Simulated assay, not measured.
Amino acid sequence: MRIMHVVLTPRHSGAEMLAATLAEVHTSTQFGVVGVMGINPCEDAFGPVWAKLKEQGVWCASPDRLLGRVGRLHFIRSMLRDFLPDVIVAHSVIPAAYARLALKFTTSAVPVVTVMHAATNDDYAGGLLRLSERILKRDAAAVVTVTETAANNYRLRCGVPRRLLTIPNGTDLDRFAFDENARRRLRAEFEVDEGVSVVLQVGRLSPVKNQAASVLALKDMLRAGLSVELWLAGLTEDPSYGDALKRLVEQHGLSGKVRFLGSRPDVAALLCAADVYVMPSEREAHSVAMIEALANGVPIVASTIPVFEFALRFPGVVTVDPASHRDYAASITKVLSAAHGRHQRDLTQYSIAHVARRYAALFDEVTSRTRFGADTAREGVT
């Protein structure tokens, strides 16, 4: 089977990392020939991931420059002709719309699986997107959501598609397991003494990720006499918010205590170096970053949003409303003082192998349905 994943921009973000990891697994298990196509150019920080995929035999393609709407359609159409997929997996609403539109300019009847990733769990809340989905819905062989909330919202906004199912995200659990050597190496590289506690937050710099709450909590912890620093890893999605964060850091005299690490390919090592992982997000889908942190065993302090409730089943996870930075700081401090080290967590259901098997079963289903439809059409069956 030839499987084509389509993402908007190859970068360190949940949807893109899921596509890349699924491509790795399905290639290594010889389930099929796999490709990953970006509609926008690959971000430099994602280059190592892109290169690794190619080394493992994954077909990768993205344009050299940003394209307009018509240019995107031409590019996708050209790549589909080169790769000749049996199934297209479009991650998020924009790739889903472009992939289905591009197919209309070909003679192929390739099934398209749309995967919804919006942090709001309400991908089609916008009127224009909702209208486009209602028009294109019949061209989707299946719609996958990462939470049941997102599935319910899809039905509410767009009606019932041909196939709708929920497949929670997963990750390579072994890749994110705790490694003492990685911890020592990275802390030495950053010149962080073992007596200093590292608070890590991973996520794009955006108001929805709420890094400002972590900065304010750090201020409170330092005032209480803790030896601690904050690492913020993630691409800058909102430059104005990134600038505001840096001003907030300077305003409170925290410049030597906050590290803006940018987009990083070594999140697994960052998790090993950290003493606590924080997620004060205002909204999330089924966060891949949360699963990575759970796999590492690091203590976690997260916001009290419903999507994080699943994590409370595991040891070493605390939720708090970060709107009160004092309560947020107190929760982080309590976790640090507990000094439990790493926690053992059974995440089998969130392993990428398990998730990949569920996607493989879906791909078999939709391609079989397409083949049956073609056969019956040839036989004149109605």
Results as ranks from 00 to 15, higher is better:
residue 3 I to A: 03
residue 3 I to S: 04
residue 4 M to S: 01
residue 13 S to W: 00
residue 14 G to M: 04
residue 16 E to D: 07
residue 16 E to H: 00
residue 17 M to V: 04
residue 22 L to C: 05
residue 24 E to I: 12
residue 25 V to D: 07
residue 26 H to V: 03
residue 26 H to S: 11
residue 29 T to I: 12
residue 31 F to R: 13
residue 39 I to C: 14
residue 40 N to K: 15
residue 41 P to G: 03
residue 48 P to F: 00
residue 49 V to P: 12
residue 50 W to E: 05
residue 51 A to F: 01
residue 55 E to T: 15
residue 55 E to K: 15
residue 59 W to K: 13
residue 59 W to C: 07
residue 59 W to N: 02
residue 60 C to H: 07
residue 61 A to E: 07
residue 65 R to E: 15
residue 66 L to W: 06
residue 66 L to H: 15
residue 67 L to T: 12
residue 68 G to S: 04
residue 71 G to A: 09
residue 76 I to Y: 03
residue 79 M to R: 11
residue 86 D to T: 08
residue 92 S to Q: 10
residue 99 A to S: 15
residue 101 L to D: 05
residue 102 A to L: 00
residue 105 F to I: 08
residue 109 A to H: 12
residue 109 A to Y: 01
residue 110 V to S: 10
residue 111 P to W: 01
residue 122 D to R: 14
residue 123 D to H: 06
residue 124 Y to K: 04
residue 124 Y to W: 10
residue 126 G to K: 10
residue 126 G to V: 07
residue 127 G to W: 09
residue 132 S to D: 12
residue 134 R to G: 15
residue 135 I to Y: 09
residue 138 R to I: 14
residue 139 D to S: 08
residue 139 D to Y: 02
residue 141 A to E: 09
residue 151 A to H: 12
residue 152 N to F: 04
residue 154 Y to D: 10
residue 155 R to S: 13
residue 156 L to C: 15
residue 157 R to Q: 11
residue 159 G to M: 06
residue 159 G to T: 12
residue 160 V to A: 10
residue 163 R to F: 04
residue 164 L to V: 06
residue 164 L to G: 10
residue 165 L to T: 15
residue 165 L to R: 12
residue 171 T to F: 00
residue 178 F to N: 03
residue 180 E to C: 03
residue 181 N to F: 09
residue 183 R to L: 02
residue 183 R to Y: 03
residue 184 R to W: 02
residue 185 R to I: 14
residue 186 L to T: 02
residue 186 L to G: 09
residue 187 R to V: 04
residue 198 V to H: 08
residue 201 Q to S: 09
residue 202 V to H: 09
residue 207 P to D: 06
residue 212 A to M: 14
residue 213 A to I: 09
residue 219 K to Q: 14
residue 223 R to H: 14
residue 224 A to M: 10
residue 224 A to W: 09
residue 227 S to Q: 11
residue 231 W to K: 02
residue 232 L to W: 02
residue 237 E to H: 08
residue 242 G to W: 00
residue 242 G to F: 00
residue 244 A to T: 06
residue 248 L to A: 06
residue 250 E to N: 11
residue 255 S to C: 12
residue 259 R to T: 14
residue 263 S to W: 01
residue 263 S to M: 11
residue 266 D to I: 06
residue 269 A to R: 03
residue 270 L to D: 08
residue 271 L to S: 05
residue 272 C to S: 15
residue 275 D to T: 02
residue 280 P to I: 03
residue 283 R to A: 07
residue 288 V to T: 12
residue 288 V to A: 04
residue 291 I to N: 06
residue 295 A to L: 00
residue 297 G to S: 02
residue 298 V to P: 06
residue 299 P to R: 01
residue 305 I to P: 10
residue 306 P to Y: 05
residue 311 A to G: 07
residue 313 R to Y: 06
residue 316 G to Y: 02
residue 319 T to Q: 08
residue 319 T to M: 05
residue 324 S to F: 00
residue 330 A to C: 11
residue 334 K to Q: 14
residue 341 G to I: 08
residue 341 G to F: 05
residue 346 D to Y: 04
residue 348 T to A: 12
residue 352 I to V: 15
residue 354 H to D: 14
residue 355 V to W: 00
residue 355 V to D: 06
residue 358 R to F: 01
residue 365 E to G: 02
residue 366 V to M: 00
residue 367 T to N: 07
residue 367 T to H: 08
residue 368 S to A: 15
residue 370 T to F: 07
residue 372 F to G: 15
residue 372 F to L: 15
residue 373 G to M: 05
residue 375 D to R: 09
residue 375 D to Y: 15
residue 375 D to P: 08
residue 375 D to C: 12
residue 377 A to S: 14
residue 379 E to F: 13
residue 381 V to P: 13
